[in-house]
């Protein structure tokens, strides 16, 4: 079976042609870099996304602290993760890159702040 995908790893947006057998990737064409290959395999076998959102701060210089997952999480976990993020509160100043939650929801990823907030 053949499947077409657009690689989302970078703005080039390569069009990938993937040959599948039993849900597994056999052959990938059309990628201009290694990332395309990794993306195609992951997107077919276990689609994943980095999540980004904001967290409420309490009495800090910003009302909202932007955050993200340091690694992608399975696509079907995105919505529950985003909901769980809405419950988090940040009460102490944080630095860009600082871990807000370790092994968030046991997904094997950390949530990190993406901006300094004093």
């Amino acid at each position: 079976m053949l499947k077409k995908l657009i690689c989302i790893e970078c703005p080039v947006s390569c069009e990938l042609l993937i040959e599948l057998s039993d849900g597994k990737v056999i052959k990938i064409e059309g990628h201009k870099c290694d990332k395309g290959q990794e993306y195609a395999k992951s997107e077919i076998e276990n689609p994943q996304r980095i999540i980004t959102s904001t967290v409420l701060a309490e009495k800090l210089s910003l009302k909202m602290v932007p955050i993200r997952s340091d690694k992608p999480i399975p696509k079907d976990k995105v919505l529950p993760a985003i909901e769980a993020i809405k419950e988090i509160r940040i009460k102490e100043p944080v630095a860009l890159g600082q871990v807000i939650r370790e092994n968030f929801l046991n997904l094997g990823v950390n949530l990190i702040a993406t901006r300094d907030v004093s």
Binding site: P11, I50, T52, S53, P66, R68, L96, T114, R115, D116
Partner: peptide, 25 residues
């Protein structure tokens, strides 16, 4: 960039996937 909290910045310049605030940072 401060309001662009999504990823997609820096792939060409830093060869990394960053959010807007991280790129600005």
């Amino acid at each position: 960039l401060n309001q662009c909290i999504h990823t997609g910045f820096g792939i060409e310049y830093f060869k990394e996937v960053l959010t807007g605030p991280e790129y600005a940072g």
